Simulated scan of single mutants.
Amino acid sequence: MAVRVFVAGGTGALGRRLVPQLVARGHQVTATTTSAAKRALLEKLGAEAVVMDGLDAISVGEAVAQARPDAIVHEMTAISGKPDMRHPDRFFSTTNRLRIEGTDHLLAAAEATGVPHVVVQSFAQSFGPGAGLLTDEDPMDPGTATMARRLSAGVMHIQDVVPEAGGTVLRYGGFYGPGASDDVVEFVRKRKFPLVGEGTGWNSWVHLDDAASATVLAVEKQARGVFNIVDDEPAQVREWLPYLAACAGAKRPMRVPKWLAKLLAGEFAVTLMTEGRGFSNAKAKRELGWQLRYPSWRQGFKEELA
């Protein structure tokens, strides 16, 4: 059944893949951007374009009220430009605000206008101790490192407030694909992305198109609760990073000890490379009927990033 969908953040890397999939399945889409210059892009993708400031409660409330959607999808981030691993708190500060304040504004607008379903983007990253894959019922743990805890504030807020409001949390894996992984590939090709320590940190990946298709299913099935939107093969950095380099035609990444990496790139870079848990996608496949085009990053990296 076709519904009216309000996509907050329609011009981001995922929004640009999500909007066309929703339109192709017959849904009426209103999508937002912070820039009037990007309205034409959203219209080209098939959406009605709206300029909205996700950090302004009035702007959000008016946009949602005018669209009268059946579902809201929160895909707002402010991740652009080359990552600053020395100062990640600065790089992710606006995104954290969008995950906290922006989420609260959208939930309030949904309640005020009677929107029955809200889907919110989160991130599958957890640094707590333990072994095995994290399920959708397992809470994410920011770990003990100061910077990791600071950067996790947004996803921790989403974890707390969205399920309580009856919404849906999609914990996406690391995105790759057009517009999502270009900077990483460039760093790898220039040998500026070394393997830190033993590279024992785990990552779960997902191609943008697979993330978008899971989001469409969450909307259509009015799914509730938390879902891990990741591929079938979580991997340690020491496994996926050399493979990515080979796919990109780059030399094998250099290896640096943790103490040196901490001096050069900061605490958070070391945490990313040496800690972290993998995530299970069993619930999304079972309850959403999700089928991945790229079940493994191995296939996806080879086809998309070479």
Score class of each variant (00 low, 15 high):
18 L>W: 00
282 A>M: 12
269 A>Q: 11
12 G>Y: 05
51 V>Q: 03
33 T>L: 01
123 F>Q: 08
20 P>L: 07
67 A>L: 11
222 Q>N: 14
94 T>V: 15
31 A>W: 03
100 I>W: 08
38 K>T: 09
209 D>G: 01
166 G>F: 07
163 P>L: 04
139 P>L: 05
12 G>S: 01
123 F>H: 15
60 V>I: 07
25 R>L: 02
43 E>V: 04
213 S>N: 07
89 D>N: 11
25 R>H: 01
281 N>T: 05
149 R>N: 13
217 L>C: 00
252 R>Q: 15
65 A>D: 03
151 L>I: 13
27 H>R: 05
60 V>E: 07
10 G>W: 05
12 G>N: 07
135 T>S: 06
299 Q>S: 12
128 G>T: 09
168 T>N: 09
82 K>F: 14
180 A>Y: 09
66 Q>S: 14
79 I>E: 13
196 V>S: 08
239 E>C: 12
30 T>K: 00
39 R>V: 05
100 I>D: 01
205 W>K: 04
1 M>F: 06
98 L>C: 00
171 R>I: 01
188 V>L: 05
237 V>T: 15
96 N>M: 15
40 A>V: 11
119 V>P: 02
67 A>N: 06
163 P>Y: 04
248 A>S: 08
281 N>W: 08
127 F>E: 06
75 E>L: 15
208 L>T: 11
181 S>I: 12
16 R>K: 09
196 V>H: 10
142 P>L: 12
202 W>N: 03
73 V>D: 09
199 G>K: 14
190 K>D: 11
279 F>A: 09
16 R>W: 06
266 G>D: 12
199 G>M: 14
75 E>G: 12
8 A>H: 01
296 S>D: 04
254 M>G: 15
288 L>V: 03
150 R>H: 15
273 M>F: 13
5 V>G: 01
174 G>V: 12
92 F>Q: 04
96 N>L: 10
93 S>K: 11
116 P>V: 08
79 I>K: 03
104 D>H: 10
200 T>W: 13
43 E>I: 06
36 A>K: 14
233 E>M: 10
303 E>V: 02
81 G>E: 08
229 I>D: 01
251 K>E: 12
184 V>E: 07
253 P>T: 13
4 R>H: 07
276 G>I: 08
133 L>R: 07
245 A>G: 05
194 P>Y: 06
155 V>M: 15
62 E>A: 13
240 W>F: 10
255 R>E: 14
48 E>I: 14
98 L>H: 04
75 E>Q: 11
168 T>P: 11
32 T>P: 04
135 T>N: 06
251 K>T: 13
220 E>P: 03
89 D>S: 15
53 D>K: 14
75 E>P: 04
159 Q>G: 04
154 G>A: 06
42 L>Y: 10
156 M>R: 12
12 G>K: 01
257 P>F: 09
171 R>G: 05
188 V>G: 07
9 G>P: 10
91 F>S: 06
287 E>K: 00
224 R>Y: 10
105 H>S: 09
251 K>L: 13
245 A>I: 09
289 G>V: 06
23 V>H: 00
118 V>A: 05
165 A>W: 09
6 F>Q: 03
174 G>H: 15
154 G>K: 09
80 S>H: 13
93 S>I: 13
164 E>R: 15
265 A>W: 15
